[in-house]
């Protein structure tokens, strides 16, 4: 790249290059965040069920 302008306009291909990178970013971020969230939710659920069993 010779300039920031060229980088941003991608030599005229900005409408194709940036959406490609954008959607890759979104899908990869989702894949990075969701499993950890599901793990925490699952642990919380298991803990709650155990407490219920103990109080019965």
């Amino acid at each position: 790249m010779k300039s920031w302008h060229e980088f941003i306009t991608m030599g005229g291909y900005a409408a194709y290059v940036w959406p490609s990178y954008g959607i890759v970013l979104v899908v990869m971020l989702a894949n990075a965040i969701l499993p950890g969230r599901r793990q925490r939710r699952l642990l919380r659920e298991i803990r709650r069920k155990q407490r219920e069993e103990q109080t019965e």
Binding site: G11, G12, Y13, V17, S20, Y21
Partner: peptide, 9 residues
Amino acid sequence: GDGFRIIYV
């Protein structure tokens, strides 16, 4: 041109 850069993803 710069359109080929999609190759990297």
